[in-house]
Design a binder for these strands. Structure first.
Length: 441
RNA sequence: UCCUGGGUAGCUCAGCUGGUAGAGCAGGUGGCUGUUAACCACCGGGUCGGGGGUUCGAGUCCCUCCCCAGGAGCCA
């Protein structure tokens, strides 16, 4: 029996007889010679057979193979310039494992709705294949980065009793007769854990029932959230910029083939190195009220920027385009930010927080802050925001027993994947996207 | 929720000032010994998103509802 070989390793078997297990992506039957291209998950390979190479029955079988049929192909590996990839299989035997039915996804263009309806099949195609491999590399790079810096993984619960941030909408579910909610952030749960371990992070799915209906939004998305005791805004800005740089460098190094498949302009990724530009909210507000920027925003159809309010999506895009690497914006007005953010002691109407905006219009990829560690102040904020104090008792407790300054941030994985891979929608950055209008497949 | 653009064959789309519906791909049949999204010939394939209206006549005009895409708001 010839060895079963992955297409990626074919170069090591030139001149030898091997078996490939895969799926038919193309068939070009040309009279008494037939070409077959198969995919096995590790790559693509052309196989060729002429009538005299195989039995009449097998040649007939070859000619009938349909798109996505599962096959075992046995033959000798040959180097040949005419073959895509440089190697091909000279067929000696074909086994049809399953003759596929008429395959819905054609070789021409399709709309995004059709492709997402067939996501279970679309995952096989080279674009999604490359994006998923980049996603895998990004996730691994995140975990390695955390591990190498002595951050401990603390998984946060997905079923929670109440809101982490009062503003966002939650998915409600029935918990033995009582309401429970799908977590929209693990932050509140890593804060106590950083008191136990110093440096921690959580990494898991989060859920937001927001009516946000853009290509940047999912209702279920993955987020990595580091949290550090004895740290403030400066420490998390430095950590975030190192983390993003580390991830981008790692993808450039190990997933260049996938970036090439996606035709990603890698020069735009190579410039992503520390330090990132840092602007305060007030710097940004000044820029956004300059006449030329105002004119540009108006032309793009952006609602006019109001000093003191949060930034709009187009404001972020315009700001992001001013730099060749991610932009850190810090010290937003306390009034527009979450209740748990520490006020700047030098200017209490500004919070010690930061957002990081990805270049090329991919939007906010990180949001973080120093957390309020004073019990009285936090209790007042919870009250002012109309949040149920009962539900936050445990969270307030942390401020009663050895409270210290601490800070952390959340990074959205799909936006990061979309930006790095150049995908048009965050929906393409997750295997099975959930959006306002999609819960299938 | 609002703004803009769409909905015609399995898919992607064309269809002029209203006159009985088209292409490419996919599928089927036949041909072809080095193809690269192979090619050539032939064949099958339609509730023109639903409902109502105007008209001798509606894919085309009007009303209404549904669905989709892009954007805004909110957010990662």
């Amino acid at each position: 029996m010839p060895p079963i070989v992955a297409i990626r390793d074919l170069a090591r078997f030139v001149g030898e007889q091997v078996t490939l297990q895969g799926w038919v992506t193309h068939r070009r039957s040309k009279g008494r010679i037939a070409f077959l291209v198969v995919r096995d998950g590790s790559g693509n390979c052309q196989a060729v057979a002429s009538v005299q190479d195989v039995s009449a029955d097998q040649f007939e079988q070859l000619a009938r193979l349909t798109h996505e049929s599962a096959v075992r192909l046995t033959g000798v590996v040959r180097e040949d310039e005419r073959a895509p990839g440089g190697f091909e299989l000279q067929l000696a035997g074909v086994e049809t494992v399953q003759l596929a039915e008429e395959y819905p996804i054609g070789r021409k263009e399709h709309g995004i709705e059709f492709l997402l309806d067939h996501r279970h099949l679309w995952l096989r195609h080279k674009g999604p294949w490359a994006v998923m491999r980049i996603r895998d590399e990004i996730v691994k790079a995140c975990r390695d980065f955390m591990y190498e810096r002595d951050f401990l993984l603390i998984d946060s619960p997905i079923l929670t009793p109440a809101a982490c941030e009062g503003t966002s909408t939650l998915f409600e579910t029935d918990y033995f007769g009582a309401p429970a909610y799908l977590s929209q952030s693990g932050q509140l749960y890593v804060e106590p854990a950083c008191i136990a371990h110093g440096k921690v992070y959580c990494f898991g799915p989060t859920f937001r029932a927001e009516k946000s209906d853009t290509r940047r939004h999912l209702t279920e998305f993955w987020m990595i959230e580091p949290e550090i005791a004895w740290a403030g805004l400066d420490e998390i800005m430095a950590l975030a910029e190192q983390m993003i740089s580390h991830i981008v460098a790692r993808v450039l190094e190990r997933r260049s083939e996938e970036l090439a498949i996606l035709e990603r302009d890698t020069t735009k990724l190579e410039s992503v190195t520390p330090p990132f530009p840092r602007l305060s909210y007030d710097d940004v507000a000044e820029r956004l009220t300059r006449p030329d920027i105002v004119a540009r925003a108006q032309q793009a159809g952006a609602p006019p920027f109001q000093p003191g309010s949060d930034l709009g999506a187009l404001d972020e895009t315009i700001l992001g385009e001013m730099f060749d690497r991610p932009l850190i914006i810090h010290r937003y007005p306390t009034a527009v930010k979450a209740f748990y953010m520490e006020p700047d002691p030098e200017r209490p109407d500004r919070a010690l927080c930061m957002d990081i905006i990805a270049p090329e219009g991919y939007g906010e990829i990180i949001g973080g802050s120093q957390r309020i560690h004073d019990h009285e102040l936090l209790a007042r904020r919870i009250d002012e925001n109309g949040l149920p104090e009962q539900a936050f008792r445990w969270y307030l407790d942390i401020r009663r027993f050895g409270t210290v300054p601490h800070a952390g941030f959340g990074m959205g994985i799909e936006r990061l994947v979309a930006w790095i891979s150049g995908a048009r929608h965050t929906r393409e950055a997750i295997p099975y996207p959930r959006t306002l209008r999609r819960l299938y497949p």
